[in-house]
Design a protein around this nucleic acid. Structure first.
Lengths: 335, 335
DNA sequence: AGGAAGTACGCAAACGTTTACGCCTTTTTC
DNA sequence: GAAAAAGGCGTAAACGTTTGCGTACTTCCT
């Protein structure tokens, strides 16, 4: 494929190609008459400016990278959509990548994005060790993590306040009269889920309730593994709990399926509370009450932190914790 | 940000930078000893090859563009995920764009992708006129449409066989004993939906049934507009039909919601059949029987057609119609 | 009229690669 | 042992832009 270049235009306009560049970019000093003439010619010839050549000299691709753990997870795909939108509003394109929860692959795609000379990278870390693995490259390109910061690391972090979200959810269930609440999900694998569990435990303690767990040992969260775990949970009758706090909406969907099969009604027999507020949660017959992560806001903050760094308007690292919100639908009931 | 370049390596290795290039690319003729030495030095210095510089001389970015109409629609986001995966397997990155069902925006992002010098573009057309609008640019870069071909246009097309899918679905409902089937959805706006309606009509005729419609006049398809239309449909009692064939799963979800509110049970009171098989359809309590579009296959074919064109292995245009498949769950019942 | 100031444009370098060509050294061949 | 072939490496051009610097021409002021 042969594209029209500045030189092609310069030849027919009988000027130097520097002049053509100035006419098109609008910045340089140039006479209004020639500018109009060149503009017309370039339109007629179907010129499109070559951004890769421009990137070489400008040393900026106006492209951002986004690495998520799993694109099939609706939380991630919603986050990706919002990020893409925010980026475009700031004048950046977005290249989307997938780490598949693997440190190796995460490192690989990170290197790839660096090779493409993206101006900045947003990463939802695959594991706790992600920072350690990526740190040699992080020095080379502005990066923000969508995750909570455990120890003080020299990167920007944006996330929901998971601890507060968990407190919010637990308190809501208690306010409905529930005393036997099961915390359902991953506890140890990621910082995010660890903090959620902590919030639950603290709130139980404060209300003299005994924290109880149904632990999901898997690295990832899915409808399927929520279902499998719930089948076991529902096998012991009579049920000795009245509410379940699922640490992710996807797990909650698995719980709904298991409950359905076991003849357990939600919310009549047991209340179910989720976390994330994925778009699924709003579906008819699902109508899951859940703690919302402000995905749009998270995406917007991450992108804007990144572009500020890129534009060198500020080189400070941000650590932002966004407030969670309770979205009441129909899966929880007064006891 | 300052990256390590070939010249930097050449300086410490005391060779010319052409030699370094040969050592790293693996193609050129070079002594094994120097190659190892250079490899080690470049590792130590943290070199990453600059793909934008390479793209300049190779005249290929190894990047594909994907334009979808709406990333929030689950059908689109699933298609996007599969495409991204296929592209990566072929060694290409993917830049994701959104036309928001607007011809203007579609044209704009297409130009943008051309400017970025992507090697090929996959587009889910926003409207019937998309081809006409994009045709001047299509000549410049290999393009494949994910859509059915109406008249013979010089572009590659990949899609499900919508007509056959519709026949399949209608015949299934008839085989369950239904005689009064409503076709629910858009009919006139897009080629895709036009063909689906045709398949329904033809099958009705063949079985001496009168085709009946609940028309959705909106350009896009959503849970919300499916819901609104269904509320009207359910307001006339008693119901004078026993099955609904929704032309998209998202509309079907809206129907489920409206039915729920109206006290109409699915499938006991009315059977509901969808089209697309989005991942939502498999959710507990939803369990929608539907005609599947083979999204993964469509993505794979589109990508592979594109890369064959790019590699100049074939310059023929493909027009591929993939077979639909009936996915039986629980929303349809014998009458 | 003569010099200063400003405007419009051309020249050429630079960005970091890849690669055709050529040269020198080493190996092979009879 | 000399000629031919092969191997290893350097030189330089090219890809399409942007931009600092230089210069010719115009305009303005006194």
């Amino acid at each position: 494929m042969k594209y029209v270049t500045l030189k092609d235009i310069a030849r027919v306009a009988e000027v130097s190609y520097a002049t053509v560049s100035r006419a098109l970019s609008g910045s340089g000093e140039i006479g209004e008459a020639t500018r109009q003439r060149i503009l017309k010619i370039s339109r007629d010839m179907g010129y499109t400016t070559d951004y890769v050549a421009r990137a070489m000299v400008k040393r900026s691709t106006r492209t951002l990278g986004l690495i998520v753990t799993n694109l099939n997870n609706p939380f991630m795909s919603e986050l990706a959509n919002f990020s893409e939108q925010s980026a475009r509003e700031e004048g950046y394109e977005m290249i989307l990548c997938n780490s598949s929860h693997s440190l190796d692959q995460e490192k690989q795609v990170f290197q790839l994005l660096v090779g493409r000379r993206v101006d900045g990278i947003i990463v939802v870390p695959a594991e706790q060790e992600s920072y350690a693995v990526l740190s040699p490259y992080i020095a080379q390109v502005p990066t923000v993590f969508i995750s909570e910061n455990i120890r003080d690391m020299p990167v920007s972090f944006v996330s929901v306040d998971n601890y507060a979200g968990s407190v919010l959810g637990t308190e809501y269930l208690i306010s409905l009269g529930h005393r036997d609440i099961i915390y359902f999900g991953r506890r140890l694998v990621s910082v995010t889920h660890h903090l959620r569990a902590e919030g639950y435990i603290a709130t139980c303690m404060k209300n003299s309730l005994r924290p109880r767990f149904a632990d999901n040992p898997l690295p990832s969260t899915s409808i399927q593994n929520g279902y499998e775990l719930a089948v076991r949970l529902f096998s012991k009758r009579p049920l000795d709990f009245s509410a379940i706090f699922a640490s992710s909406d996807t797990n909650a969907l698995g719980i709904i399926k298991a409950a359905d099969e076991a003849g357990i009604r939600i919310p009549e027999d047991v209340s179910l509370l989720g976390f994330d507020n994925i778009s699924f949660a709003d579906l008819p017959k699902i109508e899951l009450t859940t703690v919302e992560q402000p995905k749009q806001q998270m995406a917007a903050r991450a992108v804007s932190a990144l572009v500020r760094r890129i534009r060198n308007e500020s080189d400070e690292l941000i650590k932002e914790k966004l407030p969670p919100r309770l979205v009441v639908r129909r899966s929880c009931k007064k006891r």
